[in-house]
């Protein structure tokens, strides 16, 4: 995520718009992760496996894109789109596992999520080595050329605005995430599907009494949640950088859970929270561009580690309720028994 500053190197306005553009982009996996959490938890299933789902999806999406591109000789763009599809699919599969554990087997949902996180690290680490780096592997011991990243979609007219236009020059998953925030809001609060989802998350027995299939509703929403997390995972390997590294999600799945709570389990709230976390990350990424603007008595803020602490401290302040009060769905985390 390098920001092109170009000729007008010192213009603060340009730095600010670049920063805003970066903020919106890096908030993408957080937004999608938070939406994933909302779908699961609104239906009454706690999902701390989002981190693992994202990591798994980042790997399998990337793998699918490379396969399409190098083995089947498909052009880069369709390969990447197939990659996105496989990322969502693998996110959905991990979510299915979580659903089986927590809905059918009524295993403690935190354990289920932890197992998914640990398995995702093991599986992606192992396959990454085995497929790409070992002798005699499919790609003969060397990392193949990745088909690049998803191209930028310059939003017509808006990108032509002087200076501010930079904000509207984004990649597809970022734009998809914003659209999905709007769609999720509509689905959760204005459709029968959303009503059923919220009913089984708040009072499953009452929902059961009026004929809603609690198990099915939970399964469906957890899998939708997993696919959203998968889309968030695709951001890492198909939109941000064209490569996979072990552990590359780097806690972003957990931060998106904090964003979900901060946003009080609503899509727009979660998006706003993701933007706040994204801003902290953008500050860290762009530190080199504004370091000299920081006055000397605030010299400590010139250290990128200190800036990196900000999202976590913010998370805790949010969670303690110092900034606003939040309420989870009433039946969140509780298996339903007839």
């Amino acid at each position: 995520m390098v920001v092109a500053v170009g000729g007008q190197k010192d213009s603060p306005l340009l730095i600010i718009t670049s920063m805003l553009a970066t903020t919106i982009a890096v908030a993408t996996p957080l937004t999608l992760g938070a939406l994933s959490g909302i779908f699961c938890e609104r239906a009454g299933v706690v999902n701390i496996g989002i981190e693992g789902m994202m990591l798994g999806a980042a790997f399998f999406g990337w793998l699918a894109a490379i396969y399409m591109n190098t083995i089947f000789d498909v052009a880069p763009l369709p390969s990447l789109l197939v990659g996105v599809l496989f990322a969502m699919l693998s996110g959905g599969l991990f979510a299915l596992l979580h659903a089986v554990l927590s809905i059918t087997y009524k295993v403690d949902q935190i354990i289920g999520g932890t197992v998914i996180n640990i398995l995702a690290v093991g599986i992606t680490g192992f396959l990454n080595r085995q497929l790409f780096f070992e002798k005699g592997s499919i790609f003969g011991g060397q990392v193949p050329h990745a088909p690049g990243v998803l191209p930028r979609l310059q939003i017509p007219f808006l990108v032509d605005i002087p200076v501010l236009g930079r904000i509207f020059d984004q990649q597809p998953l970022t734009i998809a995430a914003i659209l999905l925030v709007i769609i999720s809001h509509y689905v959760i609060f204005y459709t029968p599907w959303g009503l059923r989802m919220r009913a089984v998350g708040e009072h499953p027995r009452a929902a059961d009494t009026v004929g809603i299939n609690v198990s099915f509703t939970r399964y469906a929403n957890v899998i939708i949640g997993g696919m959203l997390a998968g889309l968030g995972g695709a951001y890492f390997t198909l939109e941000s950088v064209p490569s996979f590294e072990p552990l590359m999600t780097n806690g972003r799945g957990f931060i998106s859970l904090a964003a979900m709570i901060f946003g009080n389990w609503t899509p727009f709230g979660a998006w706003a929270a993701s933007l706040v976390f994204g801003a902290a990350q953008a500050l860290q990424i762009n530190l080199q561009f504004y370091r000299e603007l920081i006055p000397d008595q605030w010299a400590i803020l010139q250290n990128s580690y200190v800036v990196g602490l900000a999202p976590y401290i913010l998370t805790m302040l949010i969670l303690t309720g110092i900034i606003g009060k939040t309420t989870p769905p009433a039946a969140d985390g509780i298996p339903y028994e007839k």
Binding site: V100, I118, L119, V121, I123, Q130
Partner: peptide, 21 residues
């Protein structure tokens, strides 16, 4: 055997998963 050591991680993770199931 040219198998990566993260196999150990998979083995332990899968074991816990099956215990849960």
């Amino acid at each position: 055997t040219q198998l990566h050591s993260s196999l150990g991680g998979i083995l332990t993770g899968v074991m816990v998963l099956f215990v849960l199931l």
